[in-house]
Simulated scan of single mutants.
Amino acid sequence: MILLSDPRVIDTPVADCGEPLVDISTAPDLILDPRERDEHGAYGRVRAGVLERLRSASEKLPAGIGLLVIEGHRSQAEQARRFALYEDRLRRSGISDPAELRRRASAFVSPVEVAPHCAGAAVDLALIDTDGVELDMGGTGNGHRTGDERWCPFDAPGLSSTARDHRDLLADCLREQGFVNCPSEWWHWSYGDRYWALLTGAPAAVYGPV
């Protein structure tokens, strides 16, 4: 598993294409969840190309199933705050080596200098039914915050067949549009950032911090 702290990620160049951040709420076929709402509404924005790919992915889902967007863009200050909080939690569990702290933290919170959310390139997602009820995904998004790390990896062992099918359905529609998954977080998908470029073999990321 390649984590976001891998040196190859930061070594990946960025050639930002200059696309603006746009509001997810402008896409009526996507549902924006308020649980990560921030003061400035950043959570509800992504790069224009990311939004178009999300809309195309949504169209590939079976009738009666939709995409729930939990969070999009995140400021660098907020990203740094979340990374520090998770490092502190790991430190309290007995991990003291700085390199190991960074590696373990990056399984669930990206180092700020390469964070896909800060580039407007990442979205945290789930599937919902026609009543807006979240489908069984085998664990909640951001489950690491509540100590549910066991269910966070996309390929977590022990998932029910229903949860497995739902994760696979989410993956199929997103991968078809070029998104990549951070495998330690089933809900986290990105397009155009450094991590995406490394995994796909692109010469450079097309989205940098914004």
Rank of each mutant, 00 (worst) to 15 (best):
E59C: 14
P203G: 08
H40Q: 10
A27M: 07
A57C: 06
G72Q: 04
G41C: 13
A57H: 03
V46G: 00
A121N: 06
G147E: 01
I31V: 11
D172Q: 13
Y86F: 15
L170H: 07
L135F: 02
K60G: 00
S5W: 05
Q79D: 12
S160C: 05
I10Q: 05
S190I: 10
D23S: 14
R175H: 05
V133E: 11
I65C: 06
R91T: 10
R145Y: 15
R47D: 08
K60E: 02
M137L: 12
P157I: 12
R82S: 13
H40R: 08
G143K: 07
D129K: 03
D88V: 08
P34L: 05
V14G: 10
A80T: 14
R89H: 08
D33M: 07
Y207I: 04
Q76S: 14
P209Y: 05
L68K: 09
P203V: 09
A156Y: 01
H166T: 12
N181H: 11
R167H: 04
L54W: 01
V112L: 05
R102N: 11
F83L: 12
I10C: 07
L127D: 08
R103C: 03
I65S: 04
A115E: 05
T140R: 14
G18C: 09
V50K: 02
I24Q: 00
V133Y: 08
D155W: 05
L51S: 00
V123D: 01
D23R: 15
D97I: 01
A115R: 01
A15P: 02
S110V: 02
G147P: 09
F154L: 11
A156V: 07
V22K: 01
V69Q: 04
H117N: 11
T162A: 09
L90E: 00
E78N: 07
R74S: 10
E59H: 09
G18I: 02
W151T: 10
S58T: 10
H188E: 08
V46S: 01
V180A: 08
L170Q: 12
A205K: 04
